[in-house]
Design a protein around this nucleic acid. Structure first.
Length: 560
RNA sequence: UGACCCGUGGUGUAACGGUAGCACUGCAGAUUUUGGUUCUGCCUGUCAAGGUUCGAAUCCUUGCGGGUCAACCA
């Protein structure tokens, strides 16, 4: 029992709390969590951390986890978002079973409870404008002032509240407030607003309501109604907890009680995470939509080629605690390499082609070589790759005047073509701009792969046959921001000035013919280059690949 | 000049009064028909000062640093 989970890692503070609660028989030892997104945007990697946490905790302690849409503000929320959120949660591998809920499911009960608070003298209707109420609230270091409407009679309050509900008053003219303490050092306890008037169409309740509950009034009671035991949210809600408890204390008297716990949200280097900034990137067309592969949204990561497994292992690795943190985006990249290394079939693709003519290979001849699909997967099988007199290799794999540490081709040097033969560079030709145009090599027929002749050469290159390869569009993605902290900018600038102008480069690559039948979402390792997946923009006549992430490249590092 | 929360290697995260560990990164080496993978080794840490204790990252005090809170947003 040293560890909190099956992975053998140490347990986090929430697991300690839960184990303690179970041990004490709190809420009959039940564990019931929930993931409560507001349907006003797309989910991102930060939400993934919360999803993995909430569903993971339920799983670890034989509990349940609900999906609940926090839809108390009809002016911001849309069905499109609830659909995408459900898709993303499912894709990540979690199942809320029959427990799909909406805060709007509880509007009737919430309203009844509001009347109860009014009758108990614990809530009142305030006729003042938002500006005046805000003014009276004071500042954290100075107490606020009480509203002149604070001591209306219960009868008057009920009458007014019912008329608010009936639609007699325009937006912004009245609110229902909890009567708590205008001098509290906690601003959230200074008679917080419970209901506001909004003549707006709600995506689920339509035009039934024209008053809507605020988050603070809705959330705890929604938890209560669903039997939630551990209501997990991010740190900025810590100061709301006394209010969360106040409503419950004044509304219910059961022994069962949900308890709010806060953890530190995920931050990633080279990434922005706020919904506002992500929205800005989309609406101002810095990226091509919410699922642009450079976006940290779940849909963007999915399109980029990230797998649910890799995101879950990432979430597990970043841990859960209460201190502010910035996770190195390299850890996310590590997580996806780790998974793709195990499952992605290897293929040959040349992104920056340099033609090689094998002068002693008979013209017109070709052969089919057997290549292992994945050295990490004994069950992965093999495939045939055509080889012929003219092939492409990468421009980067040849240097006219190479240093000692360069293990690839150069004049007079030998390399192995992976799965084929050892070749030796005899000559080369440049074009009029000085760019390398063609290499003339000879091959050693004795060195065919699998023949048992194992002459050692320093380098091994990937290649494709000129006459057999396919053209494919390859979208080479890099980090969206150049600065570790995108918000670190000069006076008068904002995060967009840190955008990486080279975050997307499109090239036409040459890929081996075996991928002709690949379908959208399939992931491959382009040998020696990185992991790539088939994008939804692919046509039968032309595949489109997205680069998920490069391979670790110690040579590239040495060059720096 | 308020309240609340938080300070452990470069980045995260453990250690619950008893040897500061793990992961990522970085560096060095071995293996390798991917300069990938795998394996081995190494570097770097308890914010500070007092106190309690045989013993403090852990408990107490003070200081310092960071964060949150003043929507009819969530």
């Amino acid at each position: 029992m040293e560890n909190g989970s099956e992975s053998g890692r140490s347990k986090n503070f929430l697991e300690s709390i839960i184990e303690n609660d179970i041990h004490n028989g709190k809420n009959e030892g039940r564990v019931h969590t929930r993931f409560p997104p507001e349907p006003n945007g797309y989910l991102h990697i930060g939400h993934a951390k919360s999803i993995c946490l909430n569903f993971g905790l339920a799983d670890t302690y034989n509990g349940k986890c609900n999906l609940r849409f926090d839809d108390t503000n009809p002016t911001k929320e849309e069905q499109e978002y609830v659909n995408s959120i459900m898709e993303d949660v499912r894709w990540l591998g979690f199942d809320w079973e029959e427990r799909l809920f909406y805060a709007s499911d509880y509007f009737d009960q919430l309203y009844e409870w509001a009347e109860k608070l009014i009758l108990d003298g614990k809530a009142y209707v305030d006729d003042q404008t938002p500006d005046v109420i805000s003014e009276q609230r004071g500042v954290p270091t100075r107490p606020g002032k009480e509203s002149p409407f604070r001591n209306r009679s219960a009868d008057e309050n009920i009458d007014l509240f019912r008329r608010m509900k009936a639609g007699e008053f325009p937006n912004g003219t009245r609110v229902l407030r909890a009567k708590i303490d205008m001098a509290s050092p906690n601003m959230h306890m200074r008679d917080p607003v419970m209901y506001r008037i909004m003549h707006a169409h709600h995506h689920r309740t339509g035009d039934t309501w024209c008053i809507y509950p605020m988050y603070d009034y809705a959330h705890g009671q929604s938890d209560y109604l669903e039997g939630i035991t551990h209501s997990i949210c991010t740190l900025e809600f810590e100061i709301h907890r006394p209010l969360y408890d106040w409503f419950l204390d004044n509304l219910i008297d059961t022994e069962y009680r949900p308890r709010q716990h806060e953890f530190a949200r995920l931050n990633l280097s080279y990434t922005v995470m706020s919904k506002r900034k992500l929205l800005e990137l989309v609406t101002e067309k810095y990226v091509n939509g919410w699922d642009d592969p450079r976006m940290p949204t779940i849909s963007g990561l999915r399109r980029r080629g990230y797998t649910p497994e890799s995101i879950r292992s990432f979430a597990d690795r970043v841990g859960v605690a209460k201190r502010e943190n910035v996770i190195d985006v390299g850890l996310l990249e590590f997580s996806v390499r780790e998974h793709l290394n195990k499952v992605a079939p290897r293929i040959f693709a040349v992104l920056d082609p340099l033609k090689v003519i094998i002068t002693n290979y008979p013209e017109g001849q070709s052969e089919e070589l057997m290549l292992e699909n994945n050295p990490e997967d004994p069950q992965g099988g093999s495939r045939k790759v055509p080889f012929s007199r003219e092939i492409y290799i990468e421009q980067d794999d040849f240097m006219e005047d190479p240093p000692n540490k360069f293990f690839r081709l150069g004049p007079g040097r030998e390399v192995r073509l992976k799965g084929a033969y050892i070749i030796k560079c005899e000559d080369f030709k440049k074009d009029e701009n000085g760019r390398m145009k063609e290499l003339y090599c000879t091959y050693d027929p004795e060195t065919k792969s699998g023949s048992g002749v194992n002459r050692k050469v320093k380098g091994t290159l990937h290649w494709v046959s000129v006459n057999d390869c396919l053209d494919a569009e390859v979208r080479i993605y890099d980090r969206l921001f150049m600065n570790e902290d995108p918000d670190d900018v000069d006076e008068g600038e904002d995060f967009k000035s840190n955008l990486n102008p080279d975050s997307l480069k499109v090239v036409t690559g040459k890929v081996e013919p075996s991928v002709a039948t690949a379908s959208v979402g399939d992931t491959f390792q382009f040998q020696r280059l990185g992991y790539f997946c088939v994008d939804k923009d692919s046509k039968d006549s032309r595949l489109v690949f997205n680069r998920t992430v490069t391979l670790k490249d110690t040579w590239a590092k040495m060059k720096q």
